[in-house]
Design a protein around this nucleic acid. Structure first.
Lengths: 126, 126
DNA sequence: TTGTTAACGCGACAATATTGCAATAATATT
DNA sequence: AATATTATTGCAATATTGTCGCGTTAACAA
């Protein structure tokens, strides 16, 4: 199933690239110049996520956030999700933290993916 | 507003205590001997969470999970959410990890709460 | 035993996300 | 350039998760 290039897709990807914070469906729809159907937006985003182009993160509000992650761009092939995400409690922006972490798990445990969400205040809001 | 002791409440708390993994609404309802309304279950769980008796965690499936956390029991007053949670990709159980972590944030950033979710395989499933 | 009101059950509702299907349009083929 | 193929879209319907209002029930106190 080959991918086709469409305008909606490209604009969404551009928005995600330009935005340093992770976006959910609402935020994306607000930024789009043309009206794109909700289902389409979700399909595009999930396609990106499946292709490893963007991260899908579940916020502490339970919503899906999508972020084009610079880290992952550098090491395209090795698309790992093992990093932190930060969400500002005041301005609400959510971003990837480059900091790599290692966690000591109990004996016999192995980790596949890691998803850390820190809430706090960013430099603009603290 | 004083709390009253009800059977549903006690059974739910017992289930959470006995279960070492975090449970969502579905899993809880399945374990309950008596039929308890969905809204009631959520109200009980959120009450527990407000009172600091259980943790509320958002899973990577976007659902709310609740866990009676041993760590927090020991240091009742200082009910922090700053610890990891682990979810097994095979058996699906979700549990609190005692390991405390410190993360180095970018300059000017301050953290309030921390929510780390690691997916992998537990000792029984690896 | 009686009164107060926290907790409950039921139904309705809100919000998020997915799916089926016909129509559209991007790409390949002739 | 015209046509065929099928990925993608829009729309509507649906699923899922969680909350809220309200009348009723029952836990606890007086």
């Amino acid at each position: 199933m080959k991918r086709r290039k469409t305008q909606s897709q490209e604009e969404i990807l551009t928005i995600l690239k330009d935005s340093k914070s992770a976006l959910n469906h609402d935020m994306l729809q607000a930024k789009l110049t043309k009206k794109v159907d909700r289902a389409t937006i979700y399909r595009i985003l999930n396609r990106f996520s499946d292709d490893g182009i963007v991260h899908k993160v579940i916020g502490d509000d339970g919503k899906q956030y999508f972020a084009f992650c610079l880290n992952c761009d550098e090491e395209k092939k090795q698309h790992t999700h093992n990093h932190f995400h930060f969400k500002c409690l005041k301005c609400g922006k959510m971003e990837c933290l480059k900091h790599e972490i290692d966690v000591s798990l109990p004996k016999g445990y192995t980790s596949e993916t890691f998803n850390g969400l820190i809430s706090g205040y960013c430099s603009d809001c603290s």
